[in-house]
Amino acid sequence: MHHFAHFLRFCAQKAGFMKKNIAILASGSGTNAENIIRYFQVKKSASVALVLTNRRDAFVLERARGLGVPYCFFPKDEWGHGGAILSVLEEHGVDFVVLAGFLARVPEAILHVYPGRIINIHPSLLPKFGGKGMYGNRVHEAVLAAGEVESGITIHYINEHYDEGDVIRQVRCLVLPEDTPEELACRIHALEYEVYPEVIEQLLSEIG
């Protein structure tokens, strides 16, 4: 019966009768996650069906609870092999996976099940200022220390290496001489909130 239900759901999606289901992976406060959830709450194309985190105290869980979105925490050892996570993704009928401030490596098992359906956003113009340990204000501090005159966001597919998947879209912004990391972060966040949900919606329309 379980597999038959999935088959019916697959047929309905192909016929255009059902929304796509998005899972968001996040490790921190979850402002991007909340923005995406709210964006799709008024859309017919998709909705956020699940929020997953690798940190028990991540505030994104409170945001998901307040917005009525199912959520799960998985400890570090369960992110290693991905089996339990895949089961939850399947249980919620997830079609597309979005990383929004997620700081753990995505298990290869999940990459294999969702080829071309897992994306991330990074707060710099990759390949500059990417890689393991480069997140949040660390990125903006590095941009300013390097004397860059522009920064921006990169939306990209996920592979087995940090921040090395194929680029989907980049959007640039100026770095001002008087910028602090916090001021640059505000400008970057504004780009993320505007662009990321739109790119997700566009990609969902292309996967059928």
Rank of each mutant, 00 (worst) to 15 (best):
H161C: 09
H81L: 14
V175A: 03
F96C: 12
V175T: 09
G82F: 11
R55H: 02
P197R: 00
V195A: 05
L89G: 01
C11Y: 15
S124T: 12
E34I: 03
L89A: 05
K20P: 09
L103N: 00
G165K: 01
V195N: 04
T154M: 13
I188T: 08
F129T: 01
G66C: 03
V195G: 00
N137G: 11
V175S: 08
I118K: 01
C11K: 09
G66H: 14
I200E: 10
V167A: 10
Y39T: 14
Y157S: 07
A15N: 10
F59N: 05
R65Q: 11
F102I: 06
E201F: 11
V42D: 14
R9G: 11
G136K: 02
E160W: 09
L50W: 10
K19M: 02
E198T: 05
E141Q: 15
I36Y: 01
Q170L: 15
Q13D: 13
E62P: 01
I153T: 05
L103C: 11
E62Q: 11
H92G: 09
V106M: 13
E108K: 12
F59D: 04
D163W: 07
E160A: 09
T31C: 04
E198Y: 02
R138C: 13
H2C: 11
R172N: 14
Y114S: 04
L126F: 05
A146F: 11
G80D: 12
S29L: 05
E178C: 01
Y135F: 11
V171Y: 15
R105G: 00
L204A: 14
D166S: 07
I188A: 11
E141Y: 05
A190P: 12
I155P: 03
G152W: 12
V195T: 04
V98F: 06
